[in-house]
């Protein structure tokens, strides 16, 4: 849980940013707040604290690893949805909507051990944390929950954030760069291939296909990315139908398919 102010003494054109790492929800969430040069005001740090509290609160309520969390008690049938904190009903309702919007490809009710909204909560919480960061004192902010990203503004005035998408067939490299119109989520599925031998282990290895969905809300983008990763082209057509949401699918055979307005970054940056 460290915050680092970076940029003041570094390369002149580099935007100034406060970087924060939060260990929460079984992963690390990074929060980057981009500000004008100079010392950020107290409001920026107050909002950062609020964003962190939102993430930790989501963990407290929704952690399926914590035996006595409200979601764990709900899964065991010890409490009803009405007895749980209000966020639970809100999230389950949104999960139901996302399940329908994804034609059932995203389904927290299909998880072993009862309803498990974990896959939705990460994006939902990141989006909520982001909303706490908004103020006139910042140029932009990013909340990156292990690769699922919510953002507002950009690193500089009138510049969008640029986000790299991991190349699933070459995990140490980027497949492409997008100019972020809000949120982006990437989901992966693995396929086993006996013909693929890991040169380091000599063992056959699995390979990954990946689906990225961009749009206004990270929770929905995450659910739709799951749908595209699992269902492929069929779900790509689904995303095409949602205004403001775009998808890129990189299939097991290396084929790329994307919706008409997927925000690939242009050459000039």
């Amino acid at each position: 849980m460290t915050s680092v102010l970076r940029g003041a003494g570094e390369a002149a054109e580099r935007p100034q940013a406060i970087h924060h790492l939060e260990h929460v929800m079984g992963t690390v969430v990074t929060i980057d707040v981009y500000t004008d040069a100079g010392t950020p005001g107290a409001e920026v740090y107050r909002n950062l604290a609020r964003a962190r509290a939102i993430l930790q609160r989501a963990d407290t309520v929704f952690s399926t690893w914590k035996v006595n969390s409200p979601i764990s008690r709900l899964r065991r049938g010890e409490i009803t949805c009405e007895q749980a904190p209000p966020e639970v009903a809100e999230v389950l309702e949104q999960c139901e909507t996302a399940r329908e919007m994804s034609c059932g490809w995203f389904d927290p009710w299909a998880m072993p051990g009862g309803v498990d909204p974990t896959g939705y909560v990460k994006g939902w919480a990141a989006q909520r944390a982001l909303s706490a960061l908004a103020s006139t004192e910042i140029r932009g902010a990013i909340v990156n929950a292990a690769g699922d990203i919510a953002s507002i503004g950009g690193p500089e005035f009138a510049k969008p954030f640029r986000i790299g998408i991991v190349d699933p067939s070459s995990p140490g490299h980027l497949a492409c760069v997008v100019e972020l119109p809000g949120a982006i989520a990437t989901s992966g599925t693995y396929e086993r291939g006996h013909h693929l031998i890991d040169p380091h282990s000599g063992q056959p290895t699995a390979r990954v296909a990946s689906a990225s969905v961009s749009g206004a809300d990270l929770g929905l983008a995450d659910a739709l990315a799951t749908a595209v990763a699992v269902a492929g082209e069929e779900a790509l057509a689904l995303v095409e139908g949602f205004y403001g949401y775009e998808a890129l699918n990189i299939a097991f055979d290396g084929t790329w398919r994307w919706t008409a307005n997927f925000p690939f970054a242009s050459t000039s940056s």
């Binding site: 980057d32 640029r162 790299g164 991991v166 140490g172 980027l174 989901s187 990225s212």
Partner: peptide, 12 residues
């Protein structure tokens, strides 16, 4: 770039 999006877990 200001971030990376991708499914991870890729070690041998």
């Amino acid at each position: 770039i200001q971030g990376v999006s991708g499914a991870s877990y890729t070690s041998a």
